[in-house]
Design a binder for these strands. Structure first.
Length: 556
RNA sequence: AGGGCUGUCGCCAAGCGGUAAGGCACUGGAUUUUGAUUCCAGCAUACCUAGGUUCGAAUCCUAGCAGCCCUGCCA
């Protein structure tokens, strides 16, 4: 990731121009999630963007809970959000902020707007307000309450706050323009009555400010220089600016919009993710197949890989769909570099080495990482009974097949070359054991007779190994766009997205694996202990992602 | 009486009037005790369409077309 050579994205360009012109001196950004669900890969991009920008330009980034709707929010979510941001490698400036920290100030400013004749208490109910709003093609009508006196508005607003009126019976609205082609400017609601307990402010308030009335002022109070959000808020920018211009705020922040991240074969909407969890299509919010940050964490993705992926995908206003292969590349790229290698046989097939003494045990030494000597070496016992993968043996095969074949040779990785002599089968004709011979003096060198092995396969001692469960994951959906158009994404759930393998046998070093270690099981992929089900007695490994496999593709 | 935004390779994405970067994917080939990694090579006479301006246009102008967002007291 040569961050230095990458061309600037449009937001970086704006920032550099602002810095250069002196429009701003310091960069202050913020990541403003609503604590009403778990964060997903789309939020990861926003986190990367906001925190990354602050980092790059020597500024700071706040974490602010956009908590203006107590009915949908919960403390559980704020905790998960904090954990996710930190896991991604970022630290917010100072304390976590809450839009609710500003409720008093926001209230005072609402009173100010009323005093300026720019806001009024409206008695229209939701249905009436909809009718008065007009449509996309027709101007709206002014509320009959729009002309109330400032005194009456002040009195009514105070009583709204005091709890005298029922939920939904009145609102405070900005007085802007009912004929605006931008519906957000047709006297938008600033405050609504909700007699609900708030997770931060308890029962102090029964009126709550709307997002539009809250966001810009919160930005101003935090001296946010660049308020970055997604494209759907473009139409709200005029209202954001209206509030800033009509209120005695301490700063004049600006909003910029970029396109949200879309990934194919993936669903990212809090509503849909929640349904997957609630209806038990997955094993919780952190199911390793989920695109949630907690899911990716449990799956074994690394923060660095996710950050690199965000950078690779770029920042624009084009609404595209990023190919999953780009994410997978980022994951493999990082894992390849950092992962210790190990051997683990997923579908064990016993191989008896008939010319190797039954009581002999040799210690084989192998590099922890073939491209990085500094990572050291590891050792594993070798004896006359070993296990290889069922897929790595065939009684006969064409020359494309580079594994063990009857009468042919294969290299046991980090060990001897062996030659298969016989296949022992059960009553159903399944091969249950292979008899083979070790070719002498082939550890670290080719056979003296010049007959080289065709390929290399992994193995593990049948007598000394780590028994484990392995979970193989595949994409959660079969369809590239499971929720496009009118499609019901539940119909595209991949029935083979989770395959649980029991009785897998790993090399002995795997007994020391910790939750933080990611291994490359050679020739298989990258694996990590599952934080939910793994125990010291019974390790459970998640496959983070398979190795790139050009052979399987060519063969199929 | 509609408004806002976006259209460059299969997917992301540079480009900002001087003759189409890069990444992913894909295809060859080299090295390899991982069919991995690494390495090298190939991969848009073409930039939504049609006109126009210009010596020269993906970039400027005009007219279209397509997609996304907006009619919550959600964010």
């Amino acid at each position: 990731m040569s961050e230095t050579s990458r061309p600037l994205n449009f937001i970086e360009r704006i920032i550099e121009e602002d810095l250069k012109s002196g429009k701003v001196n310091t960069i202050h950004t913020r990541f403003p999630p609503e604590p009403n669900g778990y964060l997903h890969v789309g939020h990861a991009k926003s986190i990367w963007l906001n925190f990354g920008l602050a980092q790059r330009y020597g500024g700071t980034c706040n974490l602010r809970m956009d908590d203006t709707n107590p009915e949908k929010e919960d403390e559980e979510y704020v905790e998960s959000i904090k954990a996710d941001v930190q896991w991604l490698g970022y630290q917010w400036d100072g304390e976590v902020r809450y839009a609710s920290d500003y409720f008093d100030q926001l209230y005072d400013w609402a009173v100010y707007l009323i005093q300026q004749g720019k806001a009024f208490v409206c008695d229209l109910n939701a249905e009436e307000m909809r009718q008065y709003r007009g449509t996309l093609n027709e101007a709206g009508k002014e509320s009959p309450f729009r002309t109330r006196s400032i005194e009456e508005n002040l009195d009514l607003f105070e009583r709204m706050r005091a709890g005298e009126f029922a939920d939904g019976s009145r609102t405070l609205r900005a007085k802007i323009d009912m004929a605006s082609p931008n519906i957000n400017l047709r006297d938008p609601v600033l405050y609504r009555i909700k007699k609900a307990t708030h997770h931060q402010t308890g029962d102090k308030w029964c009126i709550y400010p709307s997002y539009d009335y809250t966001h810009g002022q919160s930005d101003a109070l935090e001296y946010i220089s660049h308020s970055i959000c997604t494209l759907e808020f473009e139409d709200h920018r005029p209202l954001y600016d209206w509030c800033i211009q009509n209120l005695p705020v301490p700063a004049e922040p600006h909003q910029y919009e970029f396109s949200r991240l879309n990934l194919n074969y993936t669903v990212t909407s809090k509503r849909r993710l929640k349904q997957l969890v609630v209806e038990n299509h997955v094993d919780g919010w952190n199911d390793p197949r989920m695109p949630t940050i907690s899911g990716m964490r449990r799956r074994g993705y690394t923060p660095k890989a996710i950050r690199n992926f965000c950078e690779m995908a770029g920042v624009t206003k084009v609404e595209g769909v990023v190919d999953l292969s780009m994410l997978e590349h980022a994951i493999r790229d990082d894992l390849n570099e950092i992962s210790p290698r190990a051997m683990c046989v997923l579908h064990p097939l016993k191989v008896t080495l008939t010319n190797y003494p039954d009581d002999k045990v040799e210690t084989m030494t192998a590099p922890v990482h073939p491209q990085n000597e500094a990572m050291g070496t590891r050792e594993m016992p070798f004896c006359c009974e070993i296990l290889i993968d069922q897929d790595d043996f065939r009684e006969e095969a064409n020359k494309q097949y580079k594994r063990l074949v009857l009468g042919k040779r294969v290299r046991l990785r980090n060990s001897y070359v062996i030659e298969a002599d016989a296949a022992i089968k059960d009553a159903d004709g399944n091969v249950i054991e292979v008899r083979a011979r070790v070719i002498e003096n082939t550890v670290g060198k080719d056979p003296a007779d010049g007959v080289k092995a065709k390929g290399v396969i992994h193995w593990v001692s049948a007598r000394e190994n780590v028994d484990c469960e392995v979970r193989l994951y595949d994409r959660l959906f079969n369809d590239p766009a499971p929720d496009a158009g009118g499609k019901n994404y539940l119909e595209f759930i991949n029935p083979h997205s989770l395959e649980i393998l029991q009785g897998c046998k790993g090399e002995i070093g795997l007994a020391n694996a910790t939750l933080d270690d990611r291994y490359q099981f050679e020739r298989e992929g990258y694996f990590v202990l599952d934080s939910k089900y793994s125990t010291p007695e019974k390790p459970v490994f998640n496959r983070v992602i398979g190795l790139k496999d050009t052979w399987e593709k060519a063969a199929s």
